[in-house]
Amino acid sequence: MRRIVVLVLLIGVVAAACGGSAGGIEVTDVWGRPSPSAATNAAFYMNITNGGDAPDQLVGASSPACSVTELHEMYMKDGGVMGMRPVQGGAVEIAPGATVEFKPGGLHVMCIGITEELKPGTTVPLTLTFEQAGDLQLEVEIRAN
């Protein structure tokens, strides 16, 4: 019986490895690309769902793999020109019942000054800080291109 409990716990830990939830906020599909040689920056992507009744905000992120971590968004200007800027107000609103996608060409967690090579098939820790839900510890899955 004890073995089964341990096994169930282990499965729970493995299943939670790349996502996590706290206070109605659920984060899934946390990923990044392998870092190209000579690259100094990277981007992390994820889906953030607010299953609670109250609005929440993603206010920050940190990772030992990055010297500095910022919340950025890409935006399209005229003629296919893409610009990048820190998110307005330094926070991303997650409305109740909404899922906000962080994806290439849109929102991303910008990892400035990578401190280690991001290798395909590995994970790096990432902490997302929400105004209401607090800190959420996650693992970023580095996916082969």
Binding site: P36, T40, A42, M74, M84, M110, C111, N145
Partner: peptide, 16 residues
């Protein structure tokens, strides 16, 4: 090369 999002995405798509 400092570009974290659009450039790696496009180069990865081209490599694919």
């Amino acid at each position: 090369t400092f570009c974290p999002d659009v450039c790696p995405t496009t180069l990865a798509d081209l490599a694919g």
